[in-house]
Design a protein around this nucleic acid. Structure first.
Lengths: 226, 226, 226, 226
DNA sequence: TATGAATGAGTCTTCATTCAT
DNA sequence: CATGAATGAAGACTCATTCAT
């Protein structure tokens, strides 16, 4: 029953937001009375603790589990992270909305609780890795290494967090998981690639990094529709 | 006073989330009593309406104002959108958190209200544009045109929505606006660039671009960007 | 176990008051679950019944056991009652607080239950005794015989009921049992003594007994009063 | 309305005990909703604060207001204190039960709050006074000066705290205010008197000045003994 | 405009009580 | 005997909302 309640809570939190979810709703979703939720979790606060520790933290840990190999090259690492994010969210569809609203976002109700459990070390190692690769010339030097991970997170999680309701609106693009995966994969691969101009000259010139890479925009052939 | 209340409401909504913000808090922030908020807005619901119509919708409109030129090439268009997003959020720092939590995210309290006001037509035109450019070979064909705009939004807004608290945690990267702008600009520029390989050979190789990324992730090591 | 629960209940009732003591607290103090308390006592009400009948009533009975000898003179009787009160409260330290709060005091939760078990007859006999002694001139005639017993109770029980916390406050006198016994004994002995003046003249005059003491408080004799 | 609520609260607290009195009961007694009590006092805790500060503390202060005269002799002082106690409780009949149950008694809900406001200095001065008088031979040396004040309190307050319900029980003595005043006055006067034996030898000086207002103590009619 | 007083509905939380095991 | 699971009935507290002034 405890697991059941935790599952219902997590799902409702993801669907409606934590602040908008009452203990009674959670109980009703599990088919019991509100008193039961207190029986198992004592507290609203402790329920949130449990959600963080027993649900979210585990998912986060899984995402980073692969990134421990120090040897990996950043391109592979990034693709691996993306893959893991998709894996996790496939099994835990409540993760993106919860993550976005209650952890990443300002004033999120799980923020403080989660800060202690963030994989800071791994994140820092990731940043170092990418930075090294940039200096070696194997990763686009125009990217800001410390911001790259958040970009990955944003690219994957935000679309997934919108899925349900978004889909129902005519005119808006369906966020289909496979399409999204292809899209994000390609987007990141392209973004990390060293620009042609820079590739040759080890990017000393760095001419105008902000200048849109107008040169590479040469269209190849026609029927390349995705 | 009405404007003042609207401003306070918007800021508090962004900081704490709508569900966690009471009428009394808004009133107190403006230095009046809760009754005044009702005097001007009658209703909590109507206050939300006002926030959407008089604050958010205008910001959104501004972002898209540039995209109306049908002729623009997607690269420039995207950079223009990014620029506008940064402009808007500079003046309206409450936009990213509000947008993320209450509009984009599942169960956001402003979602329904905002759906009617989304620039769907412009979005669709943008998608068509990008699609055309992809077929013409001027934009990376591996991207999913319908998902591109959400990616832009995610890349810009999510980091901005986290800024305040993120900064306070040691070990996590500061999200500095200028760095972020450079990062996102470079990231999107690189992502939209047509891959060199594909550029030459019409990207027939694409045979397995959809193949789960894990396997193909092995990069050729050497001169990455051919 | 039943005894054990009864003991825990009595002690907690004395420490926190009945209204503030939950069944679960009692159970926890005895190392069992709340369900056990119901197993043995069925009811909160019946638990209170048990406390009254099996704990308090017995203590009360013991106090009066000595007073049965009709022949005793009031001075000895009073000292005997005091002695018994000290005896009983030595063994049952929970008695004073419980008695004070839940029986003597207005709205006490054991009041109704206890009323039936009060040693009314003995009390009345005590009053008659004292009254007779007053008429005989062996007991201070200014005392109100019907109120004397309550005075005794108050003098002994109230200080004992305060002991624990009182002691912890600097500046307040410690209520030490032996000192208190001496004090109360001396106080009551002195109070019952027939005033020297009155002793001789059998006090006839009678001026105005109800006259508020404030005015007559000026002592006649010289020196002492400043 | 605030005063009204405070009055209702105080009375109910005295009648039923604090723990047994709900916010709704207080509100109902004042003819409003429970929300009003929170409107004025925010909190149960703060309501208790208000009761202590705005009701009880003032009464206590009044009782001690007279005792400030350092010169007074203990006999007069004690009678003055008794007089003040009766005055105060005449106007504030809720004081005795509240004092007994919630302040004096172990685990009383106002204890901590009241400890800071106890007239400790005055109490200590009182103890010093009495002690000095005992050494001078004008006050019964067998009494424990530090315990005397509590005895006074007990003698007056405990019977008053029982009044209402006690009266309704057949067989128990009515606690009539005037009778009680006479009783306590006489009891304390007698108790403080220096024992005749001691008067002659030990402390000669005092001769018989200790005999308190012996003159006025003459009872009116004879067979008034109940 | 602006406020203070007042309220009803709802939320969290506690607790006595029950019951199958 | 003893427990864990479960509940209904409160009780404290919050909050949007109303209204007379």
């Amino acid at each position: 029953m405890r697991e059941r309640l935790l599952a219902c809570a997590t799902q409702l939190f993801a669907e409606q937001g934590i602040a908008a979810t009452t203990m009674a709703q959670i109980a009703a979703a599990a088919g019991v009375t509100a008193a039961m939720v207190h029986y198992y979790f004592t507290n609203r606060e402790k329920l949130l603790d449990a959600v963080v520790e027993e649900r979210i933290a585990r998912s986060i840990a899984y995402v980073w589990a692969s990134a421990d190999s120090d040897a990996a090259d950043p391109h592979a690492l990034v693709q691996e992270l993306v893959a893991r994010l998709f894996e996790v969210t496939e099994r835990q569809p409540w993760l993106p909305p919860l993550w976005l609203r209650e952890i990443v976002n300002e004033g999120g109700l799980l923020r403080e609780r989660m800060l202690k459990r963030l994989p800071i070390e791994q994140l820092q190692r990731f940043v170092v890795h990418v930075g090294a690769a940039q200096r070696e010339g194997t990763v686009n030097p125009d990217l800001e290494a410390p911001l790259l991970f958040m970009s990955i997170l944003a690219l994957v999680m935000l679309p997934l967090a919108t899925s349900k309701l978004w889909q129902s609106t005519r005119g808006l693009p369906r966020v289909e998981r496979n399409a999204l995966r292809r899209h994000v994969t390609a987007l990141l691969a392209g973004a990390m690639r060293v620009p042609a101009a820079a590739a040759g000259e080890t990017r000393d010139a760095s001419a105008a990094p902000e200048s849109p890479p107008a040169q590479t925009r040469k269209r190849p052939t026609s029927g390349s529709a995705p």
